[in-house]
Design a protein around this nucleic acid. Structure first.
Length: 418
RNA sequence: GGAGAGAUGUCAGAGUGGUUUAAUGAGGCGGUCUUGAAAACCGUUGACCCAAAAGGUCCGGGGGUUCGAAUCCCUCUCUCUCCGCCA
């Protein structure tokens, strides 16, 4: 793709507002050079290999003199192969370093744009609540009903690490369990992955090198705290060759997620709006290349129905080039309406990465013709908890209690928080 | 954390400097035989670079010694056994 149609690649990158399009040319030049060197290297190496074998034969038949002669010509070849090898190695390294700087190309469906304002509103659903002017934002409600203690979290760790207490903790647990049950019913296999990953895994899903400063890093052991369970889940299939009949692979996991969120401030970080540690249930699919967009639609519908069951007002956005992630080809964001704050809050992001992650992960399958193909990977939140919790509290508040949606009764025990 | 052993193809497992071009077995695939199956027999059986052929690379990762390394040396990682510590 890069080689056949560099202009197309540049045009697509432009939709993501990627500035360094000269990298595309750099890569092609580097690759040309690499090929040339490789050919030179192979030729010389083949001579050396053949001669070395010859020496073995000569030695065993006692022709020492001839062997010695061959040795000297080999050492000549070797001294000329050495710089080629070194140069080829350097170029390969440079090529790799440059290649990983390129983000994934956006799909044709991706709208142009620079920021959240340019996202395409695909669908809205649910009823916005009619709250009176005395309605409280969720951080006040959390205090009133003793559900979350933000100050205590600040004392124990720092801001952005809330402490859920009593019914707050219980509601978290109920939501997690409901989400997991909902996902496993749809055929997703439940996983509990490690909450820290090594650099190879962070690289495999594209967090490195792009999002390095967003992750917490454990220096001593070289581990990253996961920003989402997408990372360990997808990396289960790093360096794996699958059989076609094993696809699709569907996984779901609950995990806490850790994000440094450097540079956030103001109303964005108030209450549960933006945290350093939060709970999330994730879904991941690994599918055949041809089926990934079909799968994306299926996953969007899956999340949509989950939101409907929670009786929350929501909207689905197709992200514009400027707002998309580094690794994604097409992303749908789900937002729910926070009644008291009167703003939309993102609660899920469902993406098709096509083969971008698969290429880094080296996750492939053999198709019906026994040819190697890269898989396509997809993931989505189903769902992130804090903002769901915020909306449930705000939208369902009354004078003296908070009503809970029907579906949670089984998990929470009652249908209201007092 | 201490001591020891180990890492080879899909799996098991040989190989300690030169026809190893990785033996052998199992599994998989194809075939013969069979009404069908099993058994038996025959064949086949990885990845990467390269448009392809030729060729090259790959025996946990990286480096070194050598004309030649799965094999020798250094280093890192991981696994197993025993001991210690610990939820």
């Amino acid at each position: 793709m890069l080689r056949n149609n560099p202009q197309l690649v540049k045009d697509r990158l432009a939709i993501k507002n990627f500035k360094q399009t000269e990298l595309v040319d750099d890569i092609i030049n580097l690759d040309d050079e690499r090929k040339k060197l490789q050919a030179e290297f192979d030729l010389l190496q083949s001579k050396i290999n053949a001669s070395s074998k010859e020496i073995g034969k000569l030695m065993s038949t006692g022709k020492k003199d001839e062997a010695e002669q061959l040795k000297t010509s080999i050492s000549e070849w070797k001294s000329s192969i050495e710089p080629i090898k070194k140069k080829a190695f350097d170029i390969e390294k440079k090529l790799e370093e440059t290649l990983v700087l390129l983000p994934n190309l956006p799909s044709e469906l991706v709208p142009k744009g620079f920021s959240a304002e340019d996202n395409l509103n695909v669908k809205e659903g649910g009823q916005k609540p009619l709250l009176n002017s005395s309605a409280l934002p969720h951080w006040e409600l959390a205090k009133k009903y003793k559900l979350i203690d933000f100050e205590l979290g600040t004392k124990i760790t720092g801001s952005g690490f809330p402490v859920y207490t009593g019914n707050g903790a219980k509601l978290q647990r109920a939501l997690i369990q409901y989400f997991l049950d909902y996902n496993t019913t749809a055929g997703y296999k439940e996983i509990i992955p490690p909450f820290m990953v090594n650099a190879d895994s962070a690289f495999g899903t594209g967090q490195l090198p792009d999002k390095e400063e967003q992750m917490y890093y454990v220096n001593e052991d070289g581990f990253y705290l996961i920003p989402t369970s997408e990372v360990p889940l997808t990396n289960i299939y790093r360096d794996v060759i699958l059989k076609q009949e094993e696809l699709p692979i569907k996984m779901t996991a609950y995990s806490p997620c850790f994000r440094r969120e450097a540079g956030s401030y103001g109303k964005d970080v108030r209450g549960l709006n933006r945290l350093h540690q939060f709970e999330k249930v994730e879904i991941v699919q690994i599918v055949q290349a041809e089926k990934s967009y079909e799968t994306l639609d299926e996953m969007v519908a899956h999340v949509e129905q989950l939101l409907q069951s929670l009786e929350l007002p929501y909207r689905i956005l197709r992200l514009c080039g400027g707002d998309m992630g580094f690794a994604s080809a097409l992303t749908y964001d789900f937002e729910v309406f926070s009644g008291a704050q009167k703003r939309w809050l993102e609660v899920s992001s469902v993406s098709n990465f096509e083969n971008f992650q698969a290429n880094r992960l080296k996750c492939r399958y053999k198709d019906e013709n026994n040819k190697m193909q890269l898989v396509h990977t997809l993931n989505g939140s189903s769902l992130a908890l804090p903002r769901i919790l915020a909306c449930l509290l705000e939208n369902n508040q009354t004078e003296n209690n908070i009503k809970l949606p029907e579906v949670l009764q089984k998990y929470f025990g009652t249908n209201e928080i007092k």
